[in-house]
């Protein structure tokens, strides 16, 4: 599975997916036992949204919002710094493996929808709106439900996992049906 072009694991961009999965499992064990926290991302993004809403709604407006006051307080804490860390970790990893590359329109998208940058960025923006609204409604994303919740055998998380995959499969087949073989 590991690319034969380099024997150094640091410079090899792709690692075996089972190895990566096992290491994420070990990371979960560490976050649960050492910090009493599960891995999760989307609450941190909701906290960031609260910070971004301050110039729009005013600090009082944000503080008066039930969700930002109780569920996703816009502040630097374990969860919001975990999101910052995830960005930094991928940046460091892609620089170390020399796979950092500025790219706007992925090949699969271009083959199906053409090379328009505006079209891809608009779709990504709208996809981002929909995915986070779904994640907040379900109270978790692929990390918080998909990994952390599923590994605790949570009813909510397995429901999320199965329905999310079914919805993604249906959407992918509708959108990319007329693909080139």
């Amino acid at each position: 599975m590991i690319s034969p072009t380099s024997l150094s694991p640091i410079k090899t961009h792709r690692w075996n997916p089972y190895l990566v999965g096992a290491l994420i499992g070990v990371l979960s064990i560490l976050t649960f036992s050492l910090a009493d926290k599960p891995i999760g991302i989307s609450t941190g993004i909701a906290q960031a949204a609260g910070a971004c809403a301050v110039p729009v709604m005013g600090a009082e407006g944000v503080a008066a919002n039930t969700y930002w006051a109780k569920k996703a307080v816009p502040a630097w804490d374990y969860g919001s710094l975990f999101v910052v860390g995830s960005f930094l970790g991928a940046l460091i990893s892609s620089l170390m493996s020399r796979s950092f590359k500025v790219e706007t329109v992925p090949t699969v998208w271009r083959d199906r929808f053409g090379p328009s940058v505006a079209k891809r960025l608009t779709a990504a923006f709208l996809g981002g709106v929909v995915i986070i609204f779904g994640a907040r409604l379900a109270d978790g994303c692929t990390s918080g439900h998909g990994i952390s919740g599923s590994l605790q055998l949570a009813v909510s998380s397995w429901t999320f996992f199965l329905v999310m995959f079914a919805s993604g499969i249906a959407t992918a087949f509708v959108i990319f049906r007329r693909r080139r073989a």
Partner: peptide
């Protein structure tokens, strides 16, 4: 959870 997951799957494919 079900409504959220339905939206999430759609958003995940479009966002990528």
């Amino acid at each position: 959870v079900v409504l959220g997951a339905l939206l999430f799957g759609i958003g995940m494919v479009i966002y990528g």
